[in-house]
Amino acid sequence: MAAVLVENIDKSYGNVTALKSIGFQMDDGEIFGLIGPDGAGKSTLFRILTTLLLPDGGRASVAGHDVIQEYKHIRKKVGYMPGRFSLYQDLSVEENLSFFATIFGTSIQENYDLVKDIYQQIEPFKKRLAGKLSGGMKQKLALCCALIHKPEVLFLDEPTTGVDAVSRKEFWEMLQSLKKKNIAILVSTPYMDEASLCDRIALMQNGEILKIDSPGQMVIDFQKPLYAIKTEHTYTALSYLRSASFTRSALPFGEFIHLTTNKPYEALQIKDDLERVGIPIQEVKRTAPSIEDIFLDLSQTNEPIDA
């Protein structure tokens, strides 16, 4: 049985279309990532699947229950962590956790196994008010609260936004261990580097899913030659590359320029070409695509970039 099944979901707010016939399936015990920039429609999809928002059209079911007809069943079976920290800031860590346990008709003791690994990290601060916790600890507490009733499906809306690198890493480790307990996890993130930590990902933009696959397969499928160019004259190099006939796309990427070409070239050939027009180049190398490259490539096919 699919943990989440989405078919042709539409949603618009007035004139703004937030979701355009979205469809995907997510299996039990799978970490499924929704990857996309702000405004891609990720949170809207979360709100529909957690029964907070009604879709305009299409069908969706969570843990085998329809999100419109059987929303009451869903609420017992899912854990939701909204993008914004939304626990009681004026209650302590312990009070928050036992509050959410009680309203789901359970207790901390009953499901302690499930949250133990995470809760132990914040337990030394259990008397501290939730509002006084650091960002990383807040996320851990929110995850505990979302887990305390042993949900079948966990919805995490941008759980690592605004969290430091170490806490982000820890957070993903926790998700991996939850996956082993057969909890399906739908997670959204604007960070492309987190995509490779998911079993499968859906790349989203402007309310549409561009592609769904496992991150590994996406990299394999990416056929276009990709080069990383290192130069101190990023701007001139970019302008030149964008007007060059062999270029498919050229985008700044950290300290590199990522260049895709229409057909394979030798790295040296590109370096020579650039240096011939007077742009000093430190390095050109063929490189494996990251999810970000794939995302940018896919989003460009929809929207041609201006030179």
């Binding site: 029964t51 017992k76 009681y88 800031q89 959410f100 309203i103």
Partner: peptide, 13 residues
């Protein structure tokens, strides 16, 4: 305003 109602609304309350 704080957003806690969002969390409450997904519970079976």
């Amino acid at each position: 305003e704080i957003g806690t109602i969002e969390q409450i609304n997904v519970t079976p309350i």
